[in-house]
Nucleic acid binder design. Structure first.
Lengths: 201, 201
DNA sequence: GCGGACCGATGACATTTGTCAGGGGGGGAT
DNA sequence: ATCCCCCCCTGACAAATGTCATCGGTCCGC
């Protein structure tokens, strides 16, 4: 019997997937969590064979949790199941030790199939997405550039960001400027968009 | 037997919900579509008793489709099922003639229950959300202000917007300024965020 | 030990953005 | 007929943003 942990914040999605997997003869959902910071604890408690992790979760990113999970419970495989097939996400997932990366766009049947393939030792990755991740190259942004961009997402002014990060306003503008340069965009809003698009935040 | 139409762009979600509803003894999913501009045609073909519509769909908004559907197939009830419980969305859904408004956050069991309640003639709306919609008041933005804000979502400059909307740059800045004023924000990025948050775009 | 990358900062500059006070024209309500 | 709101425009001004050159400090790899 394959024991599955399910981490997904949208209640309806989580419930539907759990129901669906429980219908499979050889699978059983042994834990369900809605927040990223509950994943490791729940896994240590329920000892699943595989963890299905969403990336954008409240509390903690599914990618961060994946890295910890691999370390603290190596017997548990990780399959990332996400809405957004962003190159940077795939890259980070692989670096975190995930065995598979599935986008929620595809048919439901893919899910159970992917679980079985992962447990058979395969790596499950959409070929087109893998190509995109490789062609996009690694994240060109430095830590601080990422910090400043993330702080700028919902319209914060330079003064706001400087305050939040304890930096000089001029420094913030420099980081923004270089982030804009590296993303090949024209202003911070485009830079934020481009960085998110690539999964660089 | 309750005949259901399902409009949802995310393949996995759509498949899971369809499976789940088909498990109900008295329900049957008679049509599934992934794009907003296929809803009416599919409904006219399959003659469902109720249509489950997501709002943010490719091609056409589920809200727009709902209005058409109510007109062309009045026997078919509409239940909006969406990720975002935004006040403006709820308001528009009601104006479009929807019988219910469900957010995807809740448990799956709510879905079948909501369908039955709608078909029994009830209106299904989250009470908290209804209160929020009323307290938020109607959309304060004029048509042009909405146009300009939507054109500004992903970092377009004033010149870009002016070009796209065939307006003078000064006019664009005036609309932006008044939108910023009405939303009580400090710059266009915050204004866009606030407007989206409220479902005003 | 030295080059290179990152962090943090300053000052100056050009450009963009946001605000304000207008004005003309249209259409809908009282 | 008048008022009010929306549309579109102008011009001017202040503030915020983006760019550039430059500096000192740390840490890592060769």
């Amino acid at each position: 019997m394959i024991k599955v942990l399910l981490a997904e914040d949208q209640g309806m999605m989580r419930g539907a997937l759990a129901l669906l997997l429980d219908l499979e003869e050889d699978m059983q959902v042994v834990a369900q969590v809605a927040a990223g910071d509950q994943i490791v604890a729940a896994a240590l408690d329920a000892r699943p064979d595989i963890a299905l992790l969403d990336i954008e979760l409240p509390g903690r990113s599914g990618l961060d949790a994946a890295a910890d999970l691999r370390e603290q419970l190596p017997s548990c495989k990780v399959l990332i199941v996400t809405t957004f097939g962003r190159p940077g996400y795939l890259r980070r997932a692989m670096e975190a030790g995930a065995s598979g990366f599935l986008v929620k766009d595809g048919p439901v049947e893919d899910l159970a199939a992917a679980i079985r393939r992962v447990l058979a030792g395969e790596r499950v990755i959409d070929p087109g997405l893998a190509a995109a991740a490789l062609s996009a190259g690694p994240n060109p942004l430095t830590q601080r550039e990422r910090d400043v961009l993330t702080a700028a997402v919902d319209g914060a002014t330079v003064a706001d960001i400087a305050g939040k990060l304890h930096l000089s306003q001029a420094t913030v503008r420099n980081y923004l400027s270089s982030a804009i340069g590296k993303t090949g965009t024209r202003n911070r809003m485009e830079a934020v968009r481009a960085a998110r698009q690539n999964g660089w935040l």
